[in-house]
Simulated assay, not measured.
Amino acid sequence: MEAVFKSDRGKIRKLNEDSGGIFKNHFAVLALVADGMGGHRAGDVASKMTVDLIESKWHELNSELRAGAAEDWLSQTIEEVNTELFQYAEKNPECNGMGTTLVAAICTEDFISIANIGDSRGYVINQSKVIQMTEDDSFVNALVQSGEISKEDAEHHPKKNLLLKALGTQGKADPSIKTIVPDHGTLILLCSDGLSNKVSEGEISALAENDLSLDQMADRLISLANDYGGEDNITLAAVRISLQDEGGESL
């Protein structure tokens, strides 16, 4: 598997409150993107804590996960992280109200399980066809789902950034989780809204059609988001599946 993680502060923000990474163990690759929020420095605390906690739990695994077990692990881990973030904010007043989005993908040759909470997104790209695998946990997307506004109207809605769910809240996080079976060359793209708000699925597809390495594709995507304003932090993690009988670079 080929994999890459990149994060850019963008052109406007003084801090990068995004976090994430690519983490491997003996059987799979875990990709993470978290977009923090909640006052001065609290956002980057929330996103970094989330990634650090999940990475630690990932490396503690001592047995291979099958598809159903991977979904269970994601659900349990995200709930544990949600509780730890909330308790940390309760004990540290400067972090009161902090939270973070999260999109996570466990990637193997047999299955890919994607979990999300908030509006960071997970896309699957097969033969340049881009499919959004996650649903934004946002006020505006709820209006789209209910038929009150169109997807086009949602792009410019004044409450576009209002989230209905995030990590770091009291109670259950209740992430959404999906599992798919990859083909050779399937590409998983996880990103914060600093990318998805600026770069269209058509532009992502066009870059996927080019003979680019993941590193080159990631650089182009970040450059596009900055060219279109770069008002937010821009973060992505990408993994390309190469089945064993097809060859490919191993991670």
Rank of each mutant, 00 (worst) to 15 (best):
G168S: 04
I131D: 09
K14S: 13
I222T: 08
G202I: 05
A70C: 02
A237P: 02
T169Q: 15
V4D: 00
Y123E: 01
K11N: 15
L162A: 14
F5T: 02
M98K: 04
D72A: 13
S19K: 06
I12V: 15
S113F: 01
T83L: 13
D211M: 11
D52A: 15
S223A: 14
N197T: 01
S146T: 15
H26N: 07
K91D: 12
F27I: 09
K14E: 14
G122E: 00
Y123P: 04
D18K: 11
Q132E: 13
V103G: 02
G36D: 09
S223I: 00
Y88D: 04
M133A: 10
L15G: 04
E203S: 14
G97T: 12
S213N: 07
L102M: 08
L85F: 12
E80V: 10
L195G: 07
A115T: 12
K165F: 01
L189H: 08
K57M: 13
L212W: 12
L167Q: 03
A42H: 05
S223K: 10
H157I: 15
D215C: 09
D193S: 05
C107W: 03
L102F: 07
L32Y: 06
H156V: 14
E209Y: 02
H59A: 05
F27M: 09
K6E: 02
T101H: 01
E209C: 03
T179I: 02
L15D: 14
K172G: 03
E152R: 14
P182H: 02
S128Q: 12
E71I: 04
S196F: 02
K11P: 00
S120R: 00
I114S: 02
P182K: 05
L15K: 14
L15A: 12
G185W: 14
P175V: 10
S146M: 12
R13N: 02
K178C: 11
R9E: 09
A208N: 13
V103Y: 01
A237S: 11
R121D: 03
Q244V: 09
S113H: 03
S138C: 09
C95Q: 03
L32S: 07
A154L: 07
A142T: 11
V81G: 11
S63F: 03
E60P: 00
S200Q: 10
R121L: 11
N116W: 01
G248E: 05
F23K: 04
E79N: 04
T134W: 05
G43V: 10
N126Q: 06
V130R: 13
I180W: 03
D119T: 07
